[in-house]
Design a protein around this nucleic acid. Structure first.
Lengths: 97, 97
DNA sequence: ACAAGAAGTCAAAAAAACATGACTACACAA
DNA sequence: TTGTGTAGTCATGTTTTTTTGACTTCTTGT
C-alpha cells in the first residue's frame, strides 16, 4: 500500500549521474574507471555511490570478470532490462516537447 | 546535444514530494492547503517549492480561480498531460517487479 | 470588528547529496 | 623493483535540499 508506486523508481534514477549511467548501461557493460572518463566532471566517490545504489535498486548487476585483465563489470539486470522501454519513452517525451 | 535526454525530466520529477504531487495532479486540480493535508509530513515551504518547480518545468499550470471562494489551482499543462502515459508506465513497472 | 481559511514568504537550521584528496590492494609489464 | 591500470574506501568539506516556525496578505463568515 504505497502512496505513489512511481516514487521508488524515480528515486532510484534520481541523482546527478544516474540517468547518464543507466543510459550507458543500456549500450553495454559499465566499468568503473571507464565511467569516470565517460562522465566528465564526475568523481570516484559519486560514481561509486551511484553504482552501488543502482545495484541496490536491482537495476545493475556487479560481476567480477575473471579473464585476461581481471576486472569488474556492471550490467543491466533482468529488472534493469525491463526498464529499457520506459527509459526510452522518457527520452522520447523530452525530445518531443 | 544533450548527454542524456531523460535527465531533465527525471530531474523535474525528483524530490521528496514531487512524484506524489504529480500523481495527485493526474486525478484533478491541486490546491495548496489541500496538498498540505494530503501529504502527511510535508510542509508549506517544500510544497511551495515543489509546485514552483513543477510549474517551471512546464508540467503544471497555476491559475487563480475567480469564483465563489477565490482560490488558486494547479492543473496539468498540455505537457503535463503528455506525461500521463509515461508516468503510468513507471507505476506499472514498479508494480510488476 | 474579529476570527479563520487560503496561499503564500522569509530566515534559519538540519539533513542529505556531492566533491576533494589521500590512501589501499591487487594484477600485470618493463 | 618500479611503475601503471583497475577498483575502489575513508575522512573531510562544500553545496543543495528539506524542514521549522514566525510572519504576511487577502477574503470570507459571524
Amino acid at each position: 500500500m504505497e502512496a505513489c508506486p512511481a516514487e521508488s523508481l524515480l528515486r532510484s534514477l534520481s541523482g546527478k549521474w544516474k540517468p547518464q549511467m543507466f543510459r550507458l548501461a543500456m549500450a553495454g557493460p559499465l566499468r568503473f574507471n571507464s565511467l569516470l572518463r565517460q562522465l566528465p566532471g564526475s568523481n570516484k566517490q559519486s560514481v561509486s555511490t551511484a553504482l552501488r545504489e543502482l545495484e541496490d535498486a536491482g537495476l545493475l548487476l556487479r560481476t567480477v570478470v575473471k579473464e585476461k585483465p581481471l576486472h569488474v563489470e556492471y550490467v543491466l539486470s533482468e529488472k534493469g532490462r525491463g526498464l529499457l522501454d520506459v527509459f526510452l519513452q522518457i527520452e522520447q517525451f523530452t525530445l518531443k516537447t
